[in-house]
């Protein structure tokens, strides 16, 4: 039998840790935007003068959020995977404990890393019912946008970007480092309008498998993320 004091000591450690954890919590939010305004699914957005587009579906994974100070990693997310779904809300919030909050860079993966991809069927936000696991080949879709625009010479004018693939030479998983000022809450803007400014829907509107186009699109998607300036 352990002496009673030892239990108290553990209890003390636990409480202490809990308090510290609370003190160092940083809330990270991902804000989905269209031209600086919160994104709304099904809304008609003007594009290239006379035309317009509608987004019906937008989901993507963000994983392995880590915090850096002077190039050294000082914090890491306990929750490894986040599935951001425009259907739920244009604002996605998650909290982390970062020691002393003094970070100058936030780093994260857009999509899922190779190890997770290779593991195949998993639960939670990785469950295949999220419609983010390919049905006809390996791995997860990292970023999925669907919608329509008259610019697309496709059936029902649909555009479908199922951006995935983790095996070289068509690895679409992007790792992003953003410089930031440490604070209790940090918002990362994801402005989808920029995507359609770069990717011309009349030329590129269907990306459904890991290939050159998917890699190109994944690089464009990575440019949509920026730290929100207060």
């Amino acid at each position: 039998m352990y002496p009673k004091g030892l239990y108290s000591f553990f209890l003390f450690l636990l409480c202490n840790f809990g308090i510290n954890a609370q003190k160092n919590t940083t809330e990270i939010s991902f804000q989905l935007l269209y031209n600086t305004v919160p994104l709304e699914l099904g809304q008609s957005y003007p594009i290239s003068g006379r035309d317009s587009l509608k987004i019906d579906f937008l989901k993507f994974y963000v994983s392995n959020i880590t915090f850096f100070k002077d190039g050294k990693q000082i914090g890491k997310s306990t929750e490894k995977y986040h599935l951001i779904d425009a259907q739920n809300s244009s604002l996605y919030r998650t909290s982390y404990t970062v020691k002393n909050k003094k970070f100058d860079t936030i780093k994260f993966t857009i999509g899922l890393d190779t190890k997770t991809q290779k593991k195949g069927i998993q639960g939670g936000v990785l469950d295949p019912t999220t419609r983010m696991y390919w049905t006809w080949q390996n791995g997860f879709i990292n970023f999925k946008i669907e919608g329509s625009s008259r610019l697309c010479n496709t059936r029902k004018n649909k555009f479908q970007f199922h951006v995935g693939g983790f095996q070289e030479p068509y690895n679409t998983t992007q790792v992003l480092s953003l410089a930031c000022v440490a604070s209790k809450s940090l918002t990362i803007d994801v402005d989808i309008a920029s995507f359609f400014n770069v990717v011309s829907l009349s030329k590129t509107n269907t990306v459904m498998s890991p290939n050159k186009n998917a890699v190109m699109v994944s690089k464009v998607l990575a440019t949509l993320f920026s730290i929100h300036e207060n």
């Binding site: 195949g120 295949p128 696991y133 049905t135 006809w136």
Partner: peptide, 23 residues
């Protein structure tokens, strides 16, 4: 196309000319 047995069934389940359904 698939290198994970757990995931394999998704293909025939979803294929339009096989089971035409979804998980």
């Amino acid at each position: 196309a698939i290198d994970n047995l757990d995931a394999q069934a998704l293909a025939p389940i979803s294929h339009a000319t096989e089971m035409g359904s979804s998980i």
